[in-house]
């Protein structure tokens, strides 16, 4: 057997895993989205595109078709929230990653290790912890009354608001922002900063013209890693947001559970997938542009 063949054979588990566990379910989902719903859940094996039409045009109770912006509003709401969470995570994660990258080696490893600790616990449990922190009479309220911001029996009323959802999302996905940022910052040559300072760059210019461009792959990678799961999140919106304002993830979940409209749920999921793929393509493009920039930048230095 040739080496090449052996290599292909060695990759077999990977192909089987991707094929069976990723592409298979994806195809089933695509197929379900094109079928007809059964009232009590499940699908009839009949071709039907009405689920995709339903995203924009809905039948009202009187069976009249009308333009329905509700789902677009839900999509926009999820988009804004995911964007907000990504921005906040970047604001918090950037200095944190920079701090870690500047530590001596032994402490670096310890700090990175600490960043990954939350992943050891189930997301549901961690989100529920925030219910206790933000809830009435919880930790936040106790701090508030200790600082005399609110009266002893009052509440800051953070629970069941968009702010609570945002806190939950940033908390959940912050490590996914910090780790790629750290990876690219660690590789950064510190001497460039010294050189910049020698050439009279102030701190702001050092960040803008040296650190940010050099860590761009980390920024883009981290942002994608945070943005994508936030877009489909439904645990934080449900537990912390009170389930009043639907997010894309909750909308999909609702279709499969309570509303028993599997094709529509699958159609929204497919659309979510499309949005994510587009986001990834934009990312790939930005990364390519960055690579070109680095290359020409390097040539300029040498030339």
């Amino acid at each position: 057997m040739s080496i090449k063949r052996l290599r292909l054979l060695g990759l077999l588990p990977t192909w089987v895993t991707i094929g069976v566990l990723m592409i298979g379910p994806l195809l089933i989902m695509a197929a379900v989205s094109l079928m007809e719903a059964n009232v009590y859940g499940g699908v009839h094996l009949r071709f039907d595109v009405s689920s995709y039409v339903q995203i924009l045009f809905d039948k009202n109770l009187f069976d009249e078709t009308e333009f329905n912006p509700a789902y677009l509003i839900i999509i926009m709401r999820s988009f804004m929230l995911a964007l907000g969470a990504t921005g906040l995570a970047l604001l918090i994660g950037f200095p944190a990653a920079y701090y870690i990258a500047r530590q001596p080696d032994h402490r670096k490893n310890l700090l990175v290790f600490l960043i990954t600790i939350p992943f050891w616990t189930n997301l549901l449990v961690r989100t529920f912890a925030w219910v206790i922190i933000l809830g009435r009479g919880g930790f936040m309220d106790q701090v508030g009354s200790f600082l005399n911001i609110i009266g002893p029996d009052e509440s800051i009323n953070l629970m069941y608001t968009n702010t609570a959802i945002l806190i939950g999302l940033v908390y959940s996905y912050l490590p996914l922002m910090v780790l790629p940022l750290y990876a690219s910052m660690e590789k950064m040559d510190v001497r460039l900063l010294e050189a910049g300072a020698d050439l009279y760059a102030n701190r702001y210019e050092l960040i803008r013209r040296i650190i940010v461009p050099l860590t761009m792959p980390g920024i883009i990678g981290g942002s994608i890693l945070v943005f994508v799961p936030c877009l489909g999140a439904f645990i934080a919106p449900d537990l912390l947001g009170g389930g009043k304002k639907l997010m894309l993830g909750s909308l999909v979940q609702l279709q499969f559970a309570t509303s028993r409209n599997w094709p529509f749920g699958a159609a929204i999921a497919m659309m979510l997938l499309a949005i994510v793929v587009i986001a990834l393509m934009v990312n790939a493009r930005a990364a390519r542009r960055h690579a070109v920039y680095e290359q020409t930048g390097a040539e300029a230095t040498h030339g």
Binding site: V39, Y71, I73, L246, L254
Partner: peptide, 13 residues
């Protein structure tokens, strides 16, 4: 049942 699901989806969105 169809009507119930529509009402609920509208309330939830």
């Amino acid at each position: 049942q169809g009507l119930i699901d529509k009402v609920w989806t509208r309330v939830m969105q």
